[in-house]
């Protein structure tokens, strides 16, 4: 289980990026984080991945507190971030350096096959398309068998068709290993296609506004009623999260003016 315990993050320049995030995610659950820009989604991902540390509160995977990058957490970034000087197979095996070569090659071959890129192992990353590179990046994160897979807007740079096929790939991979998945996205459809729970966040400072459970069984039919219902609830929550933000911010300048006037 991935548990976030009143996690807050304030940057050195005083910006409060996250305030009191409490969230428990079951092993094997897929959770999508959505929200307007500046609501701390990416900050939260960086905290869970251990690349940054929380100002207060704790993050734990099965009771193991995360303070630095942890073997139980795999990360897929917004860009593929493949190492251009390694072949595709070596990129996938990057996190398996401690294993003997034969074992490493076997598991990267298996991973290539699972993401539909069998036979591409000897190529250079530059020879692949953006969607293929991102598939390699997902394979690289999954090969060390993490308990938690983090994806930070992984498909936002891709076209709609590539994105749809990558959703399929991701769900197939997930079904095979059943890691906990946390995915940040701008795309409400993407969130509902993939996630068991959609967490709507609110900016300034970043907080959890509402959590929407998606009850529709997989594979999900985007034209079906449960899908439509869930989408409406998320859109409605997003709308309200921005409205309350306006309500909160409006009185503030007035108070400031009053103070100045005096």
């Amino acid at each position: 289980m991935l548990s976030l315990n009143s996690v807050s993050k304030t940057y050195a320049d005083g910006t409060e990026a996250l305030r009191d995030i409490r969230l428990d995610i079951e092993q094997g659950e897929i959770v999508a984080l959505v929200g307007g820009s500046g609501c701390g989604k990416t900050t939260l991902m960086r905290l869970i991945s251990g690349l940054d540390t929380a100002s207060s509160g704790t993050i734990a995977v099965d009771g193991d507190v995360i303070t630095a990058p942890h073997p139980a957490v795999g990360v897929v970034f917004q860009e593929p971030r493949l190492l251009p000087w390694l072949s595709v197979a070596d990129n996938i095996g990057f996190g398996l350096h401690h294993l003997p070569r034969a074992e490493r090659e076997a598991s990267s071959d298996a991973a290539l096959e699972r993401v539909g890129l069998a036979g591409y192992g000897a190529r250079w990353p530059r020879e692949l398309s953006g969607g293929q590179q991102q598939r390699v990046s997902i394979a690289r994160a999954l090969v060390p068998k993490p308990k938690v897979l983090l994806l930070d807007e992984p498909f936002s740079a891709l076209d709609a068709f590539t994105r749809a096929s990558l959703h399929e790939h991701l769900l197939t991979l997930w079904a095979a290993i059943r890691p906990t998945v946390v995915i940040v996205t701008h795309d409400v459809d993407e969130a509902i296609r993939l996630a068991d729970r959609v967490v709507v966040m609110q900016p300034k400072p970043g907080r959890i506004f509402e959590t929407v459970s998606v009850a529709a069984p997989r594979p999900r039919d985007p034209l079906g009623l449960p899908y439509e219902k869930a989408k409406r609830r998320v859109l409605h929550a997003l709308d309200r999260s921005l409205q309350t933000e306006l309500k909160v911010t409006k009185p503030a300048p007035q108070a400031g003016e009053a103070a100045l006037w005096w």
Binding site: L51, A68, P69, V75, F77, R81, L83, G95
Partner: peptide, 11 residues
């Protein structure tokens, strides 16, 4: 810096 972060993620 992004590639350095990949290195950090893999400890």
């Amino acid at each position: 810096r992004k590639l350095v972060e990949v290195g950090r993620v893999f400890r």
